[in-house]
Design a binder for these strands. Sequence first.
DNA 1: TATTGTTATACTCTATAACTATA
DNA 2: TATAGTTATAGAGTATAACAATA
Lengths: 168, 168
Amino acid sequence: MVTPEPAKSLRPPGDATAASPAASVDQVDTRYLETLIGYNARRAALAVIGVFLPRMAAFGLKPVAFSVVSLIAHNPGITSRQLCAALNILPPNLVGLINSLAQRGLIERLPHPRDGRAMGLHLTEEGREVMAQAEKTASALEVEAAGRLSAAERQTLITLLRKVYLPD
Amino acid sequence: MVTPEPAKSLRPPGDATAASPAASVDQVDTRYLETLIGYNARRAALAVIGVFLPRMAAFGLKPVAFSVVSLIAHNPGITSRQLCAALNILPPNLVGLINSLAQRGLIERLPHPRDGRAMGLHLTEEGREVMAQAEKTASALEVEAAGRLSAAERQTLITLLRKVYLPD
DNA sequence: TATTGTTATACTCTATAACTATA
DNA sequence: TATAGTTATAGAGTATAACAATA
């Protein structure tokens, strides 16, 4: 018998890097990747978005669109440039989104009170109604997406994540 | 004077939703979005990737490629299908990546010991050398990316993130 | 019949350069 | 000159359908 028995899923605590050339893998060892914040943050974000997408499809809002409309709701008169800075979006990529939101009647562009180049963004009455429901859904969805976390753990997680991506 | 004074950055604790039609925004209020785990996780992941990309460009490895090579390093003989399942990648999107890694001489495909359809993936000697440096860089980069977090906080963050995206 | 790896392809997301109008 | 918004376009990332070889 040249072929060894299938490797047991339990590997030495050190590592499994040294193995025979023709080895096969039973249980995939992801322990190293799981020591990296970037890896875990990305996996967690994609998992939450996976729950977010089908639920928010009822409102026709994908994650970025939801963020944009939410910021307009809480910052009446915000400009495209301010949205881009706050959400790390590039201006050309926001144009189409703003257009479609305006066409759907969720937002409207009013002239900026002090800068003739800029447009202040505001929710329409329909936009306010849709967003009230959408934010309610998004907040409820949090519990479902992070079902194994207690309220205190959720707060801790958010605090730590903000420390990662916020300057200072 | 019809135009009101620019709104102060301090807003009432309740919210700033109600404001005059022609209002302009001084400081953008992102407090609602920051109550959402998905929003924070996505922002944090993008921030870490922003540090990761230029540093790992020296090895010619972007995040997904790094994850793939790392899993091959720690799981010699892993198959494409297993990589896809572990990293949530779709098979057609892995083909080109595996090809380029093989062409660069970092990995090699050996026949699977017990499944004639599958190929076991292994690092070459050069792949082992590159990956040793790459993982060293990635781990050092963690401290830089999460500079404001203590070691204990980093561990807490990782534990909480895993609870979000891992089943069970 | 089910699965591995693959091709072809489409769709979405993100990035860069350049233009206009206002400041 | 600098900035807000826009256009056009390119590139990267991600998705589905269908196929050949093997289980």
